[in-house]
Each structure stands twice: as structure tokens, then as C-alpha cells.
């Protein structure tokens, strides 16, 4: 059974068709890159996987571990192990990052019927994860994404991923807006996260992140469907020739 199976997914936004028969299968232990030009439906795909409101699924299905999750609420998908790293993380002033992280981790623990982590233990875990991403301890005390730089926001997304330990991480343009140092830190975080039991879907425009996080499969999304799949060399070929090459 595949970890993620997307079958002939069709999605409208404001009565305009964005995804038009997208199919994708991801197995545990794999990293898949979904690449495509602007407006190809990459972000729509990432958001629809997470159940964001405002996207109208008109056909097809999303299954995780054999269960249809197409109609589930976002928090239910989260409880099943689906994580979305946002392209534009939103700010929640006044709610400290630490409080937010603990609320999220506690919600997952409750769903598994486990006790909540004690505050001291959790603070220890959060600090370890933060330092792995070269984030200052004070960073955890600040409001969620409040006044964070673009790079800090992206690293904060990876921090949340490391603490929640999802089964499937969907990273929406996590590499955009990162300088080369930050990109390496983020890539190291993703590589540390990878194991045989989980999977990563990298949604990206550029292939530079793939130099650091090596994908098992690369898919090209244009016009709302996957038009080509291959191994890592496909990404390099795309970089070399541009997306226009596929239209030929």
C-alpha cells in the first residue's frame, strides 16, 4: 500500500479548473519533487493535499495509507500524519512559537491517546530542534512568525516538521527566498527528517534544493497534470533547457 496515492485529481478555484487529472503515487522512504512553471498548479496541489478551504475538488481522490482523506478537515489530515510547510507562513502575534508548537504536538499526542509532553521535556526538544536549524533560543519565545525574516519563517516551518514527525511532509516552495547558507541548513533539516517510514513531496520551481535533498523521483506539472516523470536527471535537464522544452 502506498503512503500517498493521488488519483485523477480535479480541482477548481473560483470556477476555474486548476488541476486537471493529476495522479501521483508516493511510497514510504521516498522523496518526490514536483516541479513546474509559475501557474502550473503546484501550490494548489500542495494546499489541496492539506485540505485548505477555497479549493473545490470536482473529481478524483487522495488516499493516505489506503484511507480516502479527500473530504477530511485539515486537522484530521494532520492527525493522520500529513504536514504542509507553507510557502507564505502567516503571523500570529502574541502567541509564542513555543506555545504554538506545544499546542500542536499535544494535539497529536491526544489523538494517539498519549499523555501530553511535560513542559520542561518539550522545551528541551524544541531547543534541540531549533539549534539544529541554527535558530537562536529567543526565537522560540517570539510570536509565531511575528517579525521573522523570510528565511526565519521557512526554517520555522522545518522546525515544526521536525517536532511533529509527520508521515508525509509536503514542502511548498520552501527553498524560495533562502540564501545559500539558509538553503543548506533547511536541506540538512529535511535530510535529518527522512527515514524509511516517511515520505517528502518537494514542490519547487527550481532544482537547486535538489542538489542538497536528492529526490527519488521528479515530476513535471504543467496545465494541471503531471506530464512527465523521471529520476533526478530530469530536474537537471529542466534546469538546462527550461520548462518550454517540454512543450516541444
Amino acid at each position: 500500500m502506498s503512503l500517498l496515492n493521488v488519483d485523477d485529481l480535479r480541482v477548481d478555484v473560483d470556477d476555474k479548473t486548476i488541476l486537471n487529472g493529476l495522479s501521483l503515487t508516493v511510497d514510504a522512504g521516498e522523496v518526490h519533487a514536483v516541479m513546474g512553471p509559475n501557474g502550473s498548479g503546484k501550490s494548489t496541489f500542495a494546499n489541496v493535499l492539506a485540505g485548505r478551504p477555497g479549493y473545490d475538488v470536482t473529481g478524483g481522490a487522495i488516499t493516505m495509507d489506503g484511507t480516502d482523506i479527500t473530504g477530511l478537515a485539515p486537522e484530521e489530515r494532520s492527525h493522520r500524519g500529513l504536514f504542509l510547510a507553507f510557502q507564505y507562513p502567516v503571523e500570529i502575534p502574541g502567541v509564542s512559537n513555543m506555545e504554538f508548537l506545544k499546542a500542536a504536538v499535544d494535539a497529536h499526542a491526544r489523538m494517539r491517546g498519549e499523555d501530553e509532553t511535560s513542559a520542561p521535556e518539550f522545551i528541551g526538544r524544541a531547543r534541540d530542534a531549533a539549534s539544529r536549524l541554527e535558530l537562536d533560543v529567543d526565537f522560540l519565545k517570539r510570536g509565531v512568525n511575528d517579525g521573522f525574516s523570510g528565511g526565519e519563517k521557512k526554517r520555522n516551518e522545518i522546525l515544526q516538521m521536525l517536532l511533529l514527525e509527520p508521515r508525509l511532509a509536503v514542502l511548498d516552495e520552501t527553498d524560495s527566498g533562502l540564501d545559500i547558507d539558509a538553503l543548506q541548513v533547511v536541506a540538512a533539516g529535511i535530510n535529518a527528517f527522512r527515514n524509511d517510514g516517511n515520505a517528502v513531496v518537494l514542490v519547487t520551481h527550481y532544482q537547486r534544493l535538489l542538489n542538497h535533498v536528492v529526490p527519488d523521483r521528479v515530476h513535471v506539472l504543467t496545465g494541471g497534470r503531471i506530464v512527465r516523470s523521471g529520476d533526478r536527471s530530469l530536474a537537471l535537464e529542466l534546469e538546462d533547457k527550461g520548462y518550454g522544452w517540454l512543450d516541444d
Binding site: 485539515p74 486537522e75 494532520s78 500570529i92 499546542a103 500542536a104 494535539a107 515544526q160
Partner: peptide
């Protein structure tokens, strides 16, 4: 809506 969705996506 964005704030709510972020929280829900994290399981809250």
C-alpha cells in the same frame, strides 16, 4: 482564515 488554517494544519 490563514491563521486558522495554519493552526488546523498543525492539528489544532
Amino acid at each position: 482564515d490563514e491563521q486558522l488554517f495554519l493552526c488546523q494544519q498543525r492539528g489544532i
